[in-house]
């Protein structure tokens, strides 16, 4: 008998008393009633608690803020579907961009047909992505691999992640947020920069994931 049949047989036999499958009481909160201003305040509070840096700016000021945050980065990567307007204020050193030759331009674009290698990503200082949805109560930002967020590796390997959250994408609580996204996509839920509590349960920010997380909330 195959292991599969054997295990399923053992489990069916273990359930020979036919235990009832009780109805699931879902009395917990599935909606919240905060307005946009309150949602932004709560999300900022939570992100700051995780030691992320947050700025709340009008949509028109996002490009300037992105440029400011990238000031120290020698190079940065963006997913191919990122809103080009967000990068309008970034000085890429050369007006000809890619024409300057591989490895010299400041901006790298990670596209589905031409993904950057892991070693190449490791040499890049920062990454700029959008996000799918955020959870105010837990300070969580969810990336779902859409073209403006890119594949998972690009928001992981560079040490500095600049993530843009649209105020309209902020949900109050987790159930609201999860109901807005497609669970089949490769998802990453991010709540602050990487951290560990493995030594004496003292939280330390910055281990293997990006050590610096900058969130720009655009409204």
């Amino acid at each position: 008998m195959s292991a599969r049949e054997d295990i399923l047989g053992r489990i069916r036999s273990a359930l020979s008393d036919a235990p009832a499958a009780p109805p699931v009481p879902r009395e917990y909160r599935t909606t919240s009633e905060l307005d946009e201003e309150a949602l932004i305040l709560l999300l900022v509070d939570r992100l700051v608690d995780y030691k992320a840096q947050v700025s709340v700016v009008p949509a028109a000021e996002v490009p300037a803020r992105v440029a400011e945050l990238l000031a120290e980065a020698r190079s940065y990567v963006v997913p191919a579907g990122l809103d080009a307007g967000w990068l309008a204020a970034v000085d890429d050193g050369t007006s000809t961009g890619r024409a300057a030759g591989a490895g010299t331009e400041r901006r790298r674009v990670d596209a589905a047909g031409a993904p950057l290698g892991v070693a190449e990503l490791d040499g890049i200082d920062a990454v700029v992505t959008a996000s799918a949805v955020a959870v105010a109560e837990t300070g969580t930002i969810i990336l779902d691999g859409s073209p403006n967020q890119g594949r998972r590796a690009i928001s992981l390997v560079p040490d500095h992640h600049i993530c843009i959250v649209a105020a309209t994408d902020i949900a109050g609580i987790l159930p609201e947020a999860l109901r807005r996204i497609d669970g089949i996509r490769p998802l990453t839920m991010i709540s602050g920069p990487s951290a560990t509590s493995d030594i004496e349960l003292e939280r330390v920010e910055g281990v293997h994931g990006p050590r610096r997380l900058d969130v720009i909330i655009s409204r």
């Binding site: 109560e137 300070g139 594949r151 669970g183 490769p186 839920m189 602050g192 990487s194 951290a195």
Partner: peptide, 29 residues
């Protein structure tokens, strides 16, 4: 469960990272 687990384990509102994957995704992972 994503509300129950982080608060019960590390005492955080949410753990820094959660990854979800469904089989193989072309070009990602």
């Amino acid at each position: 469960f994503m509300q129950l687990l982080p608060r019960s384990s590390t005492g955080e509102r949410m753990n820094p990272y959660t990854s979800l994957w469904t089989g193989v995704t072309e070009g990602d992972g």
